[in-house]
């Protein structure tokens, strides 16, 4: 965690930062003449993986505010989005009807990325002080609670025969995920707006997560 803190100090302003940290600030490798060209692939992968995992942790515990904004990446959102789209998509093997009603993989994928893009564009247009990809990164990582609730719902769907009680339980689980996701994204992004327009920026995020949680709640086998 010591190395993480050092790296977060590099970009002091809120602008995005894709540079690999310089040798002096790279903590886990002890030897000073170690270069990213020579390091084992394992270290390279683990460093990025640790950054992604630490972001997931931040979303699940959204108390420390700005750490996530400074170094954005889109690995987490991509992972979450593909996972959710894979689970949510209509499975044609089980159901031969032409229109069984569920969304396709591409539709979920588009809703997530276009939705995040439009919400971000909206906050930029209202005068928000945040870069485009930072915002997409935060919105994408904040899908974590919803992805977790989708997995819970899927397990319930597989294990139990569906009754009214389990339907109700699935709705409650996805609502919890929705509230958590909205709370986390407001915690991370709320301060980047002029105070008079805060509600105008929060509302689209609310709508974005609400639509996705609707997809989660109404997903059936």
């Amino acid at each position: 965690m010591n190395s993480e803190d050092e790296r977060f100090e590099i970009g002091d302003d809120l602008s995005g930062n894709l540079t690999v940290p310089s040798k002096s600030s790279r903590g886990p490798i002890k030897s000073s003449n170690f270069d990213t060209l020579d390091e084992p692939i394992r270290d390279t992968i683990m460093r990025d993986l640790n950054a992604v995992i630490s972001k997931f942790r931040h979303v699940l515990n959204p108390k420390q505010k700005n750490n996530m904004l400074k170094e954005w990446d889109l690995w987490g959102p991509l992972l979450l989005c593909t996972t959710m789209a894979t689970i949510l998509q209509t499975s044609y093997q089980e159901d031969k009807n032409a229109d069984s009603g569920g969304p396709e993989f591409a539709e979920v994928f588009l809703i997530v990325w276009f939705g995040a893009g439009i919400v971000t564009l909206n906050s930029k247009l209202l005068g928000g002080q945040i870069s485009f990809f930072q915002s997409v990164c935060v919105l994408g990582y904040c899908l974590t609670p919803l992805a977790l609730s989708l997995i819970c719902c899927k397990i319930i769907l597989i294990l139990f025969t569906q009754t009214g009680f389990f339907f109700f339980l699935r709705i409650v689980i996805s609502m919890l995920g929705f509230l958590w996701a909205t709370y986390a994204s407001v915690m991370f992004m709320g301060d980047s707006q002029p105070p008079k327009r805060k509600a105008l920026v929060i509302y689209p995020m609310f709508l974005f997560y609400f639509v996705i949680s609707w997809l989660v709640a109404s997903h059936t086998n």
Binding site: N122, K124, L125, L126, G127, K196, R197, K198, A199, L200
Partner: peptide, 13 residues
Amino acid sequence: IEYYQQFFNIDTN
């Protein structure tokens, strides 16, 4: 983007 900001020049109230 500033060009389009004039269409979003509005407060919550």
